[in-house]
Amino acid sequence: MTPLLSVKDIRKTYGSHIGCTDVSFDLYPGEVMGIVGESGSGKSTLLSCLAGHLEPDQGAVNFDTRDRGLIDTVQMSEPERRMLSRTDWAFVHQHARDGLRMGVSAGGNVGERLMAVGDRHYGDIRSKAVDWLERVEISETRVDDRPSTFSGGMQQRLQIARNLVTGPRLVFMDEPTGGLDVSVQARLLDLLRGLVRDMGLSAIIVTHDLAVVRLLADRLMVMKSGRVVETGLTDQVLDDPQHEYSQLLVSSVLQV
């Protein structure tokens, strides 16, 4: 089986400071991988390098494109990479306002991505947008409202709809439930789980919340000071961590 994403030896430094280094892994279709670690461990830097938001100093991020097979996206031209991030890739930001256009209606936010890949029939775009709003549990009556009038949880769900409407194969998520209250978090997690299962998505989720990865991720990567210290099956890493830092991380979670 060809991996969907094959990452080779990624390194990114900020001057003399290491952002992340020596990161290599393969992600297969339908797999969900979590990246955990404390603040400053390099997990967001790594995600930005993978998603093409930051240029790594070295290494390759090979993606299995539909027409040409495995291609190194770091070496791709900017227009090609943009096309990829509008079609086969999606990026869910921690703060919904970074991933949404706040001055455009909810329907417009979802429809914009469809127009970017060539849809032109307004009626179709609108009905697809409404369909997706319903899938993320936003009522049709809100389709013409701006996201600035939405609650935080609704904005996050709208961002997810906007990202998934074009049927991506790989979703990058940066703290998708951060900053939301727990009841909204549970709802969002349930929604994401269903979407991942039904659409056969692959995803890379960066979070510091171990409960989130336990529910969503098949496998886990633990980072510390820019390096990967442990990888493996999610429940194995959480229930029987081998590395000193992973043990500390797992044992530091407060019990409710």
């Binding site: 194995q236 229930d239 029987d240 081998q242």
Partner: peptide, 9 residues
């Protein structure tokens, strides 16, 4: 049992 399930290494 957890080892058989792969839950423990």
């Amino acid at each position: 049992m957890r080892m058989i399930y792969g839950n423990y290494s």
